[in-house]
Simulated assay, not measured.
Amino acid sequence: MEPSDTGRPSEVPNMSVDWVGYGYSALVASGGIMGYVKKGSVPSLAAGLLFGGIAGIGAYRTSQNPKDIWVSLAASGTLAGVMGMRFFKSRKFMPAGLIATASVLMVGKIGVGMLQTPHEP
C-alpha cells in the first residue's frame, strides 16, 4: 500500500470478523458455565472456559488473517471427537450432542473456508 497525500495508506485492508467462530466460542464457554450451575461440575466449567477461550483466540486470529485457521481447527476438531464419543456413549443430546454437532459444523465451515480461500502460486 502506498501512502496517499495525507500520509495514510490509500487502501484499507479487508478484514472480516469471524462471527461464527465467536458464536461457537460463546456456546462452548456458556455450556461449561451451565454444567457448573446445574450440576456443580467443576470439570465442565474448566473445560468449557478453556476450550471456549481457545476457540475465541482462534476466531480472533481468523478475523485478523483468514488463512490462520489452525487454532480454530484444533479446538473444534478436538471437541468434535471428545464430545462425539460422549454422545455415542450416553445417547444424550444435551450437552454432548449439541457441542459435538456444533463442533462438526465448525470444522465443516473451516474446511469450506479453506477451499474458498485463494491460494498463492
Results as ranks from 00 to 15, higher is better:
E120G: 12
G21A: 02
G108T: 07
S63E: 00
L79W: 09
G32T: 02
R91H: 13
I110D: 01
T78R: 06
T62Q: 09
G81H: 03
P13R: 09
V17M: 10
G58A: 01
I57C: 04
L98H: 02
G48W: 09
W70F: 09
K38N: 14
M83L: 14
T78D: 07
A59C: 00
P118D: 06
L115T: 12
Q116G: 07
G40I: 02
D5E: 15
L115R: 10
M106A: 12
M94E: 13
S41M: 03
K89T: 15
A46K: 08
G23K: 08
P95G: 02
P66G: 08
G52M: 03
M114P: 01
Y24P: 02
S25I: 07
N14K: 15
G58M: 04
A100S: 06
S16F: 14
P121Y: 12
A96V: 08
Q64G: 09
A26Y: 03
G56H: 01
R61Y: 11
R86K: 12
I99V: 12
G35D: 04
G56P: 01
P43N: 01
G113L: 00
I33C: 07
S90F: 10
M34L: 15
G84M: 01
I110Q: 00
F87S: 11
W70D: 07
P13H: 02
P3A: 12
A102L: 08
M34C: 06
V112W: 11
D68I: 05
L98T: 13
G84L: 06
M83C: 09
G108E: 00
D68R: 11
G31S: 12
G58P: 00
Y22D: 00
F93W: 13
S10F: 10
K89L: 13
S103R: 04
V107I: 05
R86E: 13
I110M: 08
S103T: 04
Y60L: 10
L45I: 08
P43V: 09
V71D: 02
G56D: 00
S72D: 09
L49E: 03
G21C: 02
G113D: 00
R91I: 14
K92V: 11
S30G: 06
G58W: 00
